[in-house]
Amino acid sequence: MQIKNTEVLRTPNSPTPGRPVIFNQEKCTGCNICVHFCMEDIFVPAARKGELPIILYPEECWYCGNCVDDCPVPGAIALNHPLMQRVRWKRKATGEHFRVR
């Protein structure tokens, strides 16, 4: 097995759940409206104008979805439930099982 030899940093663990929302880089305009409407103030604006907001305090998210609801660009931001919380269901006719992705 070949593993690329990149520089290894001494990084701390990240808080988890660490990805309450996912931005779509192609669509997000970096307008920071979500930063404004987040009721837990978990984001901060990026240092450069027009870039994706930074998720500074992911573990403080309330998973209310307001940031998604209030974003003016459809598909620019999506809520991302913690893996532990992704609910499952069953299709009645076929018995197939599915879950939130």
């Binding site: 998604v68 999506a78 609910v87 269901w89 069953k90 939130v100 992705r101």
Partner: peptide, 18 residues
């Protein structure tokens, strides 16, 4: 967003799914 939109996008259909 957290339930109606997210589950629907993942394919949950109240007419077929439990």
């Amino acid at each position: 967003v957290p339930v109606l939109q997210t589950y629907s996008q993942a394919g949950f259909d109240p007419e077929q799914d439990m």
